[in-house]
Design a protein around this nucleic acid. Sequence first.
DNA 1: TTAGATAATGAGAGTGTTTATCAAGCCTTA
DNA 2: TAAGGCTTGATAAACACTCTCATTATCTAA
Lengths: 156, 156
Amino acid sequence: MATDFTERTVEYDKLLADFKTLLKEKALKFTNQREKILETLYYSQEHLTPEALHQLIKEKYPELNAGIATIYRTLSMLEDNNIVSSLSFGAQGKKYELGAKDHHDHMICTKCGEITEFVDEVIETQQHKIADEHGFKMQDHSMQIYGICKTCQEQQ
Amino acid sequence: MATDFTERTVEYDKLLADFKTLLKEKALKFTNQREKILETLYYSQEHLTPEALHQLIKEKYPELNAGIATIYRTLSMLEDNNIVSSLSFGAQGKKYELGAKDHHDHMICTKCGEITEFVDEVIETQQHKIADEHGFKMQDHSMQIYGICKTCQEQQ
DNA sequence: TTAGATAATGAGAGTGTTTATCAAGCCTTA
DNA sequence: TAAGGCTTGATAAACACTCTCATTATCTAA
Ligand SMILES: [Mn+2]
Ligand SMILES: [Mn+2]
Ligand SMILES: [Zn+2]
Ligand SMILES: [Zn+2]
């Protein structure tokens, strides 16, 4: 039976292979910077701001000397190709995450900032219904629930 | 029977009176700038960026010479006191609207930027249910549906 | 393997938005 | 009316990106 680490590696290898294929299809180049950005997004498994992602990469690969502009450029490119998705929370700035996983919405703790992901079929269905009723051609949606997480409630 | 204008005026007078009471309670001062900001938010009945609100006020009350910093400060204060609420769309900044009206969510046309408001009981109920299931104490939520509005579909 | 074409990069300037600072002015209350 | 302290506008500064451009890296075809 495979360990978590092995599974992750296999999954990442597939992600990377697909990424290379995509780049080739679009006549884009496979660079060290692009590889490390994808890898860091994958292994951090978090919702990262471009700035946070830049920090992580500078720490792990200082010799890469990656510039912040490249982080922004690559995140935009990845988003255009549906490899990552971005969230804009109440405060300023966007956070990015690998979109390889299925669509989901977010619950955000206003005390500790913890983000919980969830999917709810009732809501997904209802959203389409609402759009239809308004003659609106739905492309996407975004839903956030704000509140206090279990841990923070217990601490108070 | 009262006209729309009369009704609006009465409603606005109540809003203003409540605002004055709030300021007094918090030992804050009732200034010309604060009055005009509230008034403009009320009568414009739109989702305004701080910049757009500033423009409207400069046009209608040039002698007030209101500074953009005051617009930002006042909007924050109004939001802290639940008099206005803000929406943050993916791309450009935040937009503010009077929160005096009942809670609602938004449908945004990605072509023309038109914002349609809606309320859906199924979704409202389901959100509470989801929060409960995660032991999460829900305080607020925000939901946006992105797509193409009826008008923009017909034009294409 | 090499070399040429060209995509990608980092540095840093530039942009638009929001916040902080501070001296001067305005509100409130006594 | 006078004092005090909250507010204000101007402006600098912080922030979150985006653009420009010279240099570098990658790809590919010979
Ligand atoms: Mn997520
Ligand atoms: Mn609204
Ligand atoms: Zn929490
Ligand atoms: Zn439209």
